[in-house]
Design a protein around this nucleic acid. Structure first.
Lengths: 225, 225
DNA sequence: TATGCGAGTCTTGTATACAAGATGTGCACA
DNA sequence: TGTGCACATCTTGTATACAAGACTCGCATA
């Protein structure tokens, strides 16, 4: 996604609206800004030390990403995520992740697969560490999946899947707390990599489906508490 | 999508940014604003009789929809659509349309199916008319598919598919010119409705896949000219 | 006590002013 | 003639001013 690209090149000029956008997004995804919380332009502008203009433009982008909801003349608030919406997102994601695996199987080179395996192992190493930072774990997991997406060569698919995954970051911290789940994730990643290495696409598809289904159960369990 | 909802309720207050957004979007989709054309804020503001503020916010939304591309400090221009991107979009759409058909088969009631059949027939009637308006044809076709999407009950899926279809409106006028293609569309719609009525989901999936594949070929042929 | 009205305040919507980077042009100089 | 630099202009980025709708809260009245 373009915003991530921007974040990867800190030497480049970045408009304030991008900075504000990234800041607010991070705060929403981390739960520092809670669902339902009002986003008042003047308050945000004062807090971030900018004027209302970049705040407003950042909010437009957040709205588009589904992270905030706007009501005309009444302002913006952080979007609530209902269980139904989570279910909807995961259903779409499952379908597209299957497409991604098929395309990745088609296009990823041996070198790509080596990098993917490395990404899976990097995540596994973090899982073995007792006091690993949850947000680092999340990023490592994200990196693994992002490599598969990149392997598809379909930019639109990459963009949509990135966006859908983003919706779930808000739950990530919750379900990553469970250590059993972490170990399961490692094993599933491994199974995916192995299937791709064997070019056994149907097995890879089964594994990614299982991976998403498990994620669904895990998040639902976390929500039940 | 929320913008369409806004358009459906003209009695409601609509911020200028929405008006500008809808205006520019229509002009881009209709080809009145051509790919690569620069969108200069002051010029647009003068032309539409508003200030730069709503223009800027509308451009942010268009950027998000992929209809315009922004380069920091250099402004926005109408996005080019390459054949590769078209291919990418259709690939994602095919995957999600299959999901939509499966969900629609699961959730659409007999009444929903009757409405769907009516929508298919409305399109068919327009096709028989010799001098039918292309944009009306396009809207009827859109309506047919939208009904399937609505039948899924998955709001996220509806939103994403709506967005993807939008990307193709820019080609719609081209490929709908071909009268043979119109007849093919009618037959395919019919086959989809019948399969759903018989609750033969695998047949419905085959038909929607064929439908998208044919659309892909048709647009590619139109582009070749 | 409950309800309705209204002034004051808060917040968003829109316009405009100002700052600074990007571009284009013409002239000087090699 | 070609290259490069400086200045003028254009355009976007950001801040601020002003307009108008939405909300709050208290008071008056039934």
């Amino acid at each position: 996604m373009k915003d991530n690209e921007a974040a990867e090149k800190p030497e480049e000029y970045m408009p304030l609206r991008e900075v504000v956008f990234l800041t607010l997004r991070r705060q929403i995804l981390r739960g520092e800004l809670k669902p339902g919380e009002r986003l008042m332009e003047i308050a945000l502008a004062n807090r971030l030390g900018v004027s209302r203009t970049p705040i407003r433009e950042a909010i437009r982008k957040l709205e588009h990403d589904g992270l905030v909801v706007m009501i005309p003349r009444r302002g913006a608030h952080v979007a609530e995520i209902t269980r139904q919406e989570l279910c909807d997102v995961l259903e779409v994601r499952k379908s597209l992740d299957v497409l991604a695996i098929r395309k990745a199987n088609e296009f990823m080179t041996g070198k790509d697969l080596k990098n993917l395996r490395a990404a899976g192992e990097a995540f596994a190493v973090l899982v073995t560490q007792k006091n690993a930072d949850l947000s680092m774990l999340g990023e490592a997991d994200e990196h693994f999946h992002e490599m598969i997406y990149q392997g598809t060569g379909n930019r639109r698919l990459i963009q949509i899947l990135g966006n859908l995954r983003e919706q779930m970051y808000r739950f990530r911290v919750e379900y990553l707390k469970d250590k059993d789940i972490r170990q399961t994730l490692v094993e599933e990643h491994d199974a995916i990599v192995e299937a791709l290495e064997k070019r056994d696409v149907e097995e890879a598809v089964r594994m990614i489906e299982l991976h998403i289904d498990n994620q669904y159960s895990a998040i639902n369990r976390a929500l039940d508490q």
